[in-house]
């Protein structure tokens, strides 16, 4: 299954989506990422029981923070899929890249470049 997905998606591997921290997401935005998403396992199927549910809450926290400071919360997202769903992984990557393209570059990056 040699699936292709947009090359501008940079993958950072973690042992479980529960390892993803609020600071990881915020620092990515701070450093100029146009969007960040977490790909966790399906709900109810976390090997560590609730890692993906915890990740979802952290993603929501970051969305709230971004909204509070006037940045589109859609730039951060949580997706759930099983490790056997390769095609879905590629689909999500395309979906997220499309969404970010519609939103345009991050205002943080625009100002940094100016």
């Amino acid at each position: 299954m040699r699936l292709s997905y947009p090359s501008n998606v940079k993958i950072i591997q973690v042992p479980c989506s529960g390892r993803v921290d609020i600071l990881h997401l915020l620092r990515a935005i701070e450093d100029g990422a146009d969007g960040v998403y977490v790909a966790g396992c399906l709900e109810g199927e976390c090997h560590f029981l609730t890692g993906n549910v915890k990740a979802k809450k952290k993603v929501q926290y970051v969305k709230n923070v971004l909204e509070e400071i006037g940045i589109e919360p859609e730039r951060v997202e949580m997706f759930n899929l099983s490790s056997g769903e390769g095609p879905r992984f590629a689909e999500i990557a395309k979906e997220m890249v499309e969404r970010i393209k519609e939103l345009g570059p991050s205002p943080v990056k625009i100002q940094k470049a100016a």
């Binding site: 600071l23 620092r27 100002q111």
Partner: peptide
């Protein structure tokens, strides 16, 4: 410490956005 980090990052993002 944790919340200090989060607030620091958030304020930096908010101000960077405003240039």
């Amino acid at each position: 410490n944790k919340e200090v980090g989060i607030l620091a990052s958030t304020l930096k993002i908010a101000r960077a956005k405003e240039g």
